[in-house]
Design a protein around this nucleic acid. Structure first.
Lengths: 200, 200
DNA sequence: GTCTATAGTGTGATAGAC
DNA sequence: GTCTATCACACTATAGAC
């Protein structure tokens, strides 16, 4: 069906979709999801509100797309690092680096996707929460592995995992700059603090 | 003017205000500020939507009241602990304990107030942001003091302060329970991780 | 302090032409 | 793929009675 369309036509449609999602994320972040109208989104890309419904069946589906990029993508792109080589601390450092880099790349989407989940349909909400929960669980499991191997001290791994992820995700609301150097400054500080502690 | 009203009448009005704010925070947290109508708030406390305007001039003023409790109150109640006795680490521990206890006590307000700031008027938004910025700056200054005294290692104090506060505030989105014991479990894990590090 | 009634505006979404 | 036109409904806020 869609595969039978000319390539140039398909590509143009796909680009429109990402254009809509990017524009919507920006306005949702500034004003809040519910305060934004379909006309507001359409205006910023130069089309009419009704035309959006050719690309998305509802406003909620646009939000759902945003939420997927900040939950599904990290699961698929970052979590494999936890199965790589190295000690638990090295693997956690790799994950934190990748996480903050992805977060900088999709900064606006993170601002929206992590806080507008109540506006999703129950089904979409449940799926998004599953990704978040799984990501959190994998980090917790790594902490447990580090404690078992003796590399990490014994502390509540669930609470520690939640704290680490809250610390990472919070970066989206204040980070400035757009290069890997900007994110690495953050990760260096965070890993120094988390692994070796504030105390001299 | 208001002072000349009978005491019983004044008290009843004040109670209505907090009743409205509490109810509104609950619904805002569940559905998002903009998605909630004045009628929704009114319904849960058994009055008509129009009656809310006797207590608040607008919906935004209700949100503003919520934001104040999660920004002004911590400044006034927690920051004095930073001027108390003890080493920087001890004073930071005291602040973190007080912060998470206050957060648990006003959990729903934190969930709303920290994320719905874009919906405030520019003036209210600026005031709320000043409280947040000041709170953050005081924590950063304490870290700097600890580094100067040699108790803390040298690392980016601004980034570290932001990370610590993101970690603390994130607790509002997942903590269960409602006792000081529940919060202390979190603070013990966080202080162990932050001060002495994950590494054994 | 709460009510009824309503003004005025904006909303998400659809139908159907081009 | 985008348009115009429109439906049906919900919204914040106000006026004025009780």
């Amino acid at each position: 069906m869609t595969d039978s369309l000319p390539v140039s036509r398909r590509k143009r449609t796909a680009e429109r979709r990402t254009e809509i999602v990017t524009a919507a994320a920006r306005i949702f972040a500034d004003q809040g999801y519910a305060a934004v109208g379909m006309r507001d989104i359409a205006d910023t890309i130069g089309i009419r509100g009704a035309s959006l419904y050719h690309h998305f069946p509802s406003k909620e589906e646009i939000l759902y797309a945003i939420c997927l990029t900040v939950t599904k993508e990290p699961v698929e792109r970052n979590l494999p690092l936890l199965d790589g080589p190295g000690t638990p601390a090295e693997r956690l450092t790799a994950l934190m680096t990748a996480h903050v880099r992805h977060l900088l790349h999709r900064r606006v989407e993170y601002m929206v996707g992590l806080h507008e989940r109540p506006a999703l349909t129950p089904e979409h909400r449940a799926e998004i929460d599953r990704y978040l929960y799984y990501y959190n669980r994998r980090v917790r499991d790594l902490l447990v592995a580090g404690m078992r191997s003796g590399e990490f001290r014994e502390l509540n791994p669930s609470v520690a995992a939640l704290g680490i992820l809250d610390m990472l995700n919070g970066v989206s609301s204040w980070i400035r700059g757009d290069t890997d150097e900007d994110t690495d400054e953050v990760v260096v500080t965070y890993t120094a603090m988390l692994f070796d502690g504030l105390r001299a």
